[in-house]
């Protein structure tokens, strides 16, 4: 397993957010974390890479206990893309180069710049290299922050709603890109998502969160009308179109 989560629990003072969270991620897999607003999806991602310290439970990344790794060691193994992005006045190239920060001792080396160029090539970002972040569109910026996480050369990518502010074309582009990188580099991605249909097209495995605990986990077979109705409190129908299940609210 590339990522193992065992018995994870997190609470803010007086309010429990997550409990009894456990799942195992294999290399090459894309996982979608599903649930309503406030179910604890973002909190779960932040607990996985220690931005929030879980009160209970263990997370292993390739047999290393996450809590015992140094900040830099952890950042070399896990890339995290937060839900909110800042647009500052740094070029796309430098923004992606920042992803090398966990590997940089004094200053960026030739190898670091090489990695950045490879990532830019893979994501088709070469034409943007010298543009400033505050001049990019939402879709372009999202690609750049994913590129930054990839430049970390992590084993696991954690992406918090990477598609929520994107149009249809960019949504598809971003999920295809994540899928391509995960397969190509044989790493894993854990992604929180709101769009069930997008998740169904993209993810291999799913975690459905309800009230801070796992309601169901597994492959496509868990995306049933009953489960969705129970998690989202919304009656739905599931039709199959071109072998891909489609969730249609009733």
């Amino acid at each position: 397993m590339i990522l193992s989560v065992k018995d994870l629990a997190f609470k803010y003072p007086g309010r429990s957010v997550l409990q009894d969270i456990a799942f195992d991620v294999a290399p090459g897999e894309c996982w979608a974390v599903l649930g309503i607003n406030g179910a604890g999806k973002s909190t779960l991602l932040k607990c996985l890479n220690r931005i929030l310290k879980p009160q209970k439970g263990v997370v292993y990344i390739r047999e290393n206990e996450v809590l015992k790794l140094s900040n830099l060691e952890l950042a070399q193994k896990m890339g995290y893309v937060s839900q909110h992005q800042e647009r500052n006045r740094i070029t796309v190239f430098d923004a992606i180069l920042l992803g090398r920060r966990p590997h940089i001792k004094w200053d960026a080396s030739k190898h670091d710049r090489q990695v950045v160029r490879q990532v830019m090539e893979m994501l088709d970002l070469e034409d943007y290299a010298m543009r400033y972040l505050d001049e990019l569109s939402g879709g372009e910026l999202q690609k750049v922050v994913i590129a930054r996480a990839l430049a970390q050369q992590p084993d696991v990518l954690l992406l918090d709603e990477p598609t929520s502010s994107l149009d249809l074309k960019n949504q598809m582009e971003v999920v295809r890109l994540i899928k391509k990188v995960v397969t190509h580099n044989h790493i894993a991605a854990v992604v929180t998502m709101h769009d069930l249909n997008l998740a169904l097209r993209f993810a291999d495995r799913f975690v459905m969160l309800k009230n801070g605990t796992i309601f169901a986990t597994g492959g496509r077979e868990i995306i049933t009308a009953e489960n969705i109705e129970s998690v989202y409190s919304l009656p739905v129908e599931i039709k199959t179109f071109d072998t891909i299940p489609l969730v249609i609210p009733r």
Binding site: S82, Q85, I90, R101
Partner: peptide, 19 residues
Amino acid sequence: WDYNAISSGEETARGLGVN
């Protein structure tokens, strides 16, 4: 480098290993 990371957002900076 750390200041550049912080200016890209606090959570991003933490994700990049900055204390």
